[in-house]
Computed example of a mutant assay.
Amino acid sequence: MDADDDEETWGAQEAGAWFEQAPELGTHLAIYQQVLVAYGFRCALTGAAFEPISQGVHGDLAVVAIRPRELGGPLHVSNFLSLSNAAASAFARGHWLIGDDYSVVTDRDVMAPAFAEKLDADGKLFLPKDRLYHPDRVQLAWHRTRILGRP
């Protein structure tokens, strides 16, 4: 198992543990499932499709808060992204950000080359069809400020 495999496994375990152990479990699991369904069981960063599940934690997709709940993020689908485990790990490390226009900004110097090649060619995030589920721009600005120190 290489380092990328470790990161992918860690991402799924961390996301699964949070959703399974969080207070208001039913609400969190409902949001988790809504996010996966809204994105069509696809990674928002790469657009890669994964096998749907009807319940429980997905082994290949993490549901990641743009702004964590403990830091004031809302418990709403628009504050979460459906990401492959590798994309989730890179997002948590600040290796990529999302602009107000849903453009993806990456730091290819720190992102694994094999992963960087999987990014969407048009440079945009894969979005759910329903605009209600699009990432909240306020939370995206918070994430950029947290990572870059500026909006």
Rank of each mutant, 00 (worst) to 15 (best):
W18R: 11
T27R: 15
D101W: 09
L97K: 09
M111Y: 03
V105L: 12
L132D: 13
P23I: 06
P68Q: 02
Q55T: 15
A116V: 00
L29C: 04
E70R: 13
S89K: 07
V104H: 00
L127I: 00
A65M: 04
H28G: 07
H95C: 04
D130S: 07
V110N: 08
A12T: 10
G99L: 01
D4V: 13
Q13I: 14
E24T: 07
S89A: 12
G149E: 02
A88P: 00
L125G: 01
L81P: 02
M111C: 12
Y32L: 01
P113T: 10
D6G: 09
G56Y: 02
E8Q: 15
L29D: 03
A62I: 08
G40H: 00
I53D: 02
H76G: 06
K118H: 06
Y39P: 01
H28I: 06
F50I: 09
P68A: 01
I98Y: 01
P68L: 00
G99W: 05
Y133G: 00
L61K: 04
A44T: 02
A141R: 14
R42D: 02
A30S: 15
P128T: 10
F80W: 05
H95T: 02
E14D: 14
A3W: 09
A62L: 08
Q21M: 10
A3Y: 11
A87K: 13
S103D: 08
D109Y: 10
L71Y: 06
D6K: 09
G56N: 02
Q139P: 04
L45C: 11
I53R: 05
K124N: 08
Y102V: 03
A3F: 10
A87F: 11
R69T: 08
F91Q: 01
D6N: 11
C43K: 03
S82T: 08
H95N: 06
H58E: 05
D100C: 03
F91L: 00
L25V: 12
A114Y: 05
W10T: 15
Y39M: 03
A141P: 03
A17S: 14
A30Y: 13
W142I: 05
R150N: 02
L25T: 14
A49Q: 14
L125M: 04
L36V: 02
I66P: 00
E117T: 07
Y133R: 03
R67S: 01
L97E: 07
P135W: 12
H95Y: 06
P23F: 09
S78K: 10
P23S: 15
W10L: 13
D101S: 10
